[in-house]
């Protein structure tokens, strides 16, 4: 028999779906800003592996020559990003949701088992609560990353008035690199997150909209069987 089980509280669903477009706007406006001094690349010696970003990328997304526009959007939507993230953390603390989200002692070992299971190397997934160990690590890490974006962002936004913060973040140049790297991190998180949600299926996705999950209960389905044999 099927049973409706509450999974995600309304507040968490709001925070999740507000964050999605707001973060998208922050990344887009951040790209408009980054374009004006696009110096980062990955490589060694004279070998260039990856340039952030190739011209074709800028052309495809119409990134070039929008620095003023990028700054305007970035410094408006930063407030929504910050407020939404702050309320989310506050809510998880006050509601006790943090207990499901925070990794425990065995989380790193279990996360490895989850990974092996997801890659079809290991048959059994470790037992889990609302979130498995890999999710706990990912969802906690993303909060720390968000905090990192806010702090490095403030450091490069007001490097004189918040000079102490800029120094704490490793200086202006370093803070800008971290701010950029975290953004790449969000994009990777997003890709993996969407793939995992697709694999997890409808029931799991629906829970992030409706709040409930449908669980099949064994005991009750056994009781449901006709008695008069």
């Amino acid at each position: 028999m099927k049973k409706i089980v509450k999974k995600h509280p309304l507040a968490i669903r709001w925070f999740h779906w507000i964050n999605f477009p707001v973060l998208a706007i922050m990344i887009w406006s951040g790209l408009l800003i980054y374009w004006a001094n696009d110096v980062y690349k990955i490589g060694f010696g004279s070998t260039l592996l990856l340039k952030f970003f190739p011209n074709s990328f800028y052309d495809a997304l119409h990134i070039s020559f929008h620095l003023a526009e990028g700054m305007a959007y970035h410094f408006v939507f930063m407030w929504l990003f910050f407020i939404n993230g702050f309320l989310y953390v506050l809510y998880t603390i006050l509601s006790g949701e943090w207990k499901y989200l925070l990794p425990g002692k065995n989380s790193f070992k279990e996360a490895w088992q989850v990974l092996l299971h997801d890659l079809h190397i290991r048959k059994m997934a470790p037992p889990q609560n609302k979130y498995n160990a890999a999710q706990q690590i990912a969802y906690s890490a993303i909060i720390i990353m968000g905090l990192g974006s806010i702090l490095t962002g403030l450091a490069i936004y007001k490097p004189t008035q918040l000079g102490w913060l800029c120094t704490l973040m490793g200086g202006y140049k370093f803070a800008r690199i971290i701010h950029f790297a975290l953004t790449i991190g969000y994009v990777l998180f997003f890709v993996i997150h969407v793939i995992q949600v697709m694999f997890a299926g409808w029931n799991n996705f629906r829970a992030m909209v409706t709040g409930f999950e449908v669980v099949k209960t064994k005991e009750e389905s056994a009781a449901e069987e006709p008695i008069n044999k």
Binding site: A68, E69, A72, Y73, F75, V76, W79, K158, T160, Q161, L162, G163, T167
Partner: peptide
Amino acid sequence: NGARQPLRTVLDMNESLFRRILSNRHLTR
């Protein structure tokens, strides 16, 4: 001034917020 008015309004609000922490004691390194 080349910016959409709602954005400009928030930018000006940011200014009035961050002006409060500017002082002659806050020196550039």
